[in-house]
Design a protein around this nucleic acid. Sequence first.
DNA 1: TTAGGGTTAG
Length: 597
Amino acid sequence: MAFRACSPNQNQRRSMMTHLNSHLHGFIKLTGNFIITSFLLPSSSRLGLEFSPHSTSLASLLHSTSFSNNGDRPLLSRYQKVTSLDHAFKLFDEMLHTRPLPSVVKFTQLLNAVAKMKHFSSSLHLFKQMCVVGVPVDAYSMNIAIRCCCQMSRTNDGFALLASCFRRAVVPDVCTFNTLLDGLIREDRILEAERLFKKLIKHKSCEPNVVMYSTMIKGLCKFGNNDIAIGLFRLMDERGCKPNTVVYNTIIDSLCKDKLIDDAFNLFKEMVSHKGILPNVITYTSLIHGLCNLCRWDEVSKLLKEMEDLRISPNFQTFSILVDAFCKEGRVDEAEAVIDIMVERSEAPDIVTYNSLIDGYCLRGEMIKARTLLDSLTSKGLIPDVFSYNTMLQGLFRVGRCGEARKLVDEMRSQVLIPNACTYRIILDGLCNNHQVEDVLSLFHLVGDSKLNSDIQVYNILIDGMSKCGKLDIARDLFQDLTLKGLKPNVRTYNVMISGLCREGMPEEAKHLFHKMDESGCPPDNVTYRVLLQGYLITRHYNDVEMLLQEMDGRRYSLDASTLSLLIDKIAVGLLDRSMLKLIGKLVPKELMDTPA
DNA sequence: TTAGGGTTAG
């Protein structure tokens, strides 16, 4: 594998673009073919059944699994078949008047059916009624009630029910504790979740199983602790709890989201080749999503082909992710083709998918198409939401049509769609990008001390916008104001401030701020390093470049195309030492590398 | 009869 960016000349750079384009082109061609062929896959795979390449014949599987409707599957009881809340309440009332009272199992079936319809408070209400009339509740019914609390983000009420378990001599099991653990994680109470998990193991309250480990791993991933999550994953294996597809998927997805795609693929390889665990559509969708985010299109097409070989059919979410990725690249034709296939497969695109398409049109400046689509959503049976309008709004600002953007906001109001915090941020950002400094500031001041302005993201937009409009003094004042407002700068705040300082030729002040980050408990991220490096290079501040590169290597960070290009230019003209190339080579992500001819 | 994994705006 050659390091493409080593040669700085114009031809090489052009060739990199051509190469990338041909990949993209190849991908689209292949994807187009593939999606059509996957639509033609045997109906078994469209039904969501997956086949190992070594499995017994397709026909026998089809026969035994997908079409055997009689006998094998237990019939659902009338309590599990409820279709509406009304129906459930009527049935419950009937049960209360039956003598002797139906068994707790029947009641539990009904509770579960109601919970599955996402009527959590009703399910909980029925549970309480059961207790009142003296149905002897057990761990199953208790677990459903606890789950209802947790799903409504009332995990504390779930713990209160746990206490009542002890009073009622109901023994909580691993499922009870896992539900509570999941509730804590859902409410972002990761420290309490960790404490509970450790306590359960210490007191041997229950033996964690693969679901519980997986819940804890999900929580750790959610809070950016991939390494600790992987540590727990290894520990679980050592303790004799065999990992399965779900646990692998959880970690793979988190690595993909953090752009650690190569680590994700190592894990994927381990899962499939060493452990013999079959990947499924979720595994592939996570990987595809990760690759799309990094624009590694050739590998996306490879994975889609692999799915086809394994007879794993892409599903609604896979398609949705592809539509979104195509739209973000401005490839709306391909996105439209995928949407057509979704319609053919009766996986009707939802509002989210269409929002991506609106975004794609806007990105290409095709505002009429975007507007027509927005207006046609209702006829597709979808109600345009604030999200759709926000997307359109963003597009109008992007092409500099501030007047029309204003009109759209008025239109939202007239449609009783209340602009939300995101609308506000889009307007601020749009006005900044269109250099409407006066308007931005008057809007910001008009909003004043309202909750909308107690938002670090608002400040990030304004600091960035002001410094890009050449108003670094205002940006600095806003940065100072943060602490007075009781807001804490986040990594993005530092990044935009550092970037602004560099833009105005103040690398020393930028460096000072950079050093403050770690001590403020906000360590610099990949972007901080890139921004500072670019600042140093543009302001001809070369002394610290190598040190920054080494630190990046230590933190496993990587270079982006523009920083890389700047570094190479400086080496080419002899302002930076060629010896740095080796270190730079280590920091180039795969998507910027050449592939063998 | 109970618990776990993948898409949405800066």
